[in-house]
């Protein structure tokens, strides 16, 4: 899984609401069947934060919950729409579209 995939997954699971790092990976595991590696997860989180797509909330214990920003919500929406269009075209080409 490349870096951009990891970033999309993190954005995707945060769309449901704020989560801390371990919970983000658990949600990704539920979604895809496998956890991201520790370097991939926090590399993605750090990049998304630098790009202003996610932000951290106040610390709870040793962990900081993260949430989508408005820019992150917009970026995720655009990305998912583009992916949906690709999926729809591919499925239609395969004769599998409903």
């Amino acid at each position: 899984m490349n870096g951009n995939d990891a970033q999309t997954l993190v954005l995707c699971v945060l769309a449901d609401g704020p989560l801390h790092g371990y919970a983000i990976n658990t949600a990704i595991e539920e979604l895809t069947g496998e956890r991201l590696g520790p370097g991939s997860l926090y590399g993605a989180v750090s990049r998304l934060e630098a790009k202003g797509l996610i932000e951290s909330l106040e610390e709870t214990g040793r962990q900081r919950p993260l949430q989508l920003t408005d820019a992150g919500r917009k970026a995720l929406t655009e990305q998912l729409r583009a992916m949906a269009k690709v999926a729809e075209t591919g499925l239609r080409s395969l004769g599998l579209a409903t």
Binding site: Y22, N25, R35, L36, G37, P38, G39, Y42, G43
Partner: peptide, 24 residues
């Protein structure tokens, strides 16, 4: 910023997580 949480995730991943940790 992330060492505590990274350590927690690395412990959960075990030996399989080490190459990803190094690449990160």
């Amino acid at each position: 910023r992330w060492a505590d949480e990274l350590r927690l995730e690395a412990e959960a991943a075990g030996v399989r997580g080490l190459p990803d940790l190094a690449a990160g």
